Amino acid sequence: MPSGEFLAWVAEVDSQIVATSGLVFFQRSPYNDNLSGLEAYILNVYTIPMWRRQRIATALLKEIISFLRATEAKRLWLYTTEDGKRIYEKLGFVSTSKEIEMVWY
C-alpha cells in the first residue's frame, strides 16, 4: 500500500513464493511504556506445506523484527495458533491473555 501502513515479506525459492507475512502499523494513544503509541500487528504468516519446518517463517519474522526495531513502534503483536506459538516464543514473544506479543523500550 502506498501509505506504508501495510507491508509484506515473502520468501521465494526458484521464483516461487513459498512463504509470506504481513505487517500493519497503527497508532494508539501514548502510554507509559510506549510514548509514541505506534504499534505493529503481524498477520497472514503462511508457508506452503511442503516448505514447512525449514525455518522459512522464522527467517521472515526475524526480518520483520529487525525492520521494526528501526522504527518508533514499541510493540509487536499477533494472534497465533497453538502450532505457531512455539515459533514466536523462540523469537522472544510472550503470551498474554488474548494474544502473543513482543515489547521493547
Rank of each mutant, 00 (worst) to 15 (best):
S29C: 07
I64L: 08
Y46C: 09
I65W: 03
I87A: 06
W77N: 02
K74W: 02
L76V: 09
N32K: 00
Q27S: 08
K85L: 15
N44C: 12
P49R: 08
E63P: 01
V45E: 04
F25A: 05
G84I: 11
A40I: 06
A57T: 13
K62H: 00
T47E: 01
A70K: 12
L61V: 09
R52E: 08
D83P: 01
A73Y: 04
A70S: 11
L38E: 01
E63S: 14
Y31L: 07
R75A: 00
S66Y: 08
T71L: 02
L78F: 10
Y31D: 01
R69L: 03
A73T: 05
Q27G: 06
R28Y: 07
L35Q: 13
W77I: 04
W77E: 08
V45R: 07
R53C: 10
S36C: 05
I56D: 11
Q27F: 10
T47G: 05
Y41G: 03
E82I: 10
Y79H: 15
L61P: 02
S36W: 04
A73L: 00
L68C: 00
T58V: 11
R28M: 11
I42F: 13
E89H: 11
R28V: 00
S36Y: 06
N44S: 15
A70W: 00
A57R: 11
S66G: 06
Y88G: 08
R52V: 07
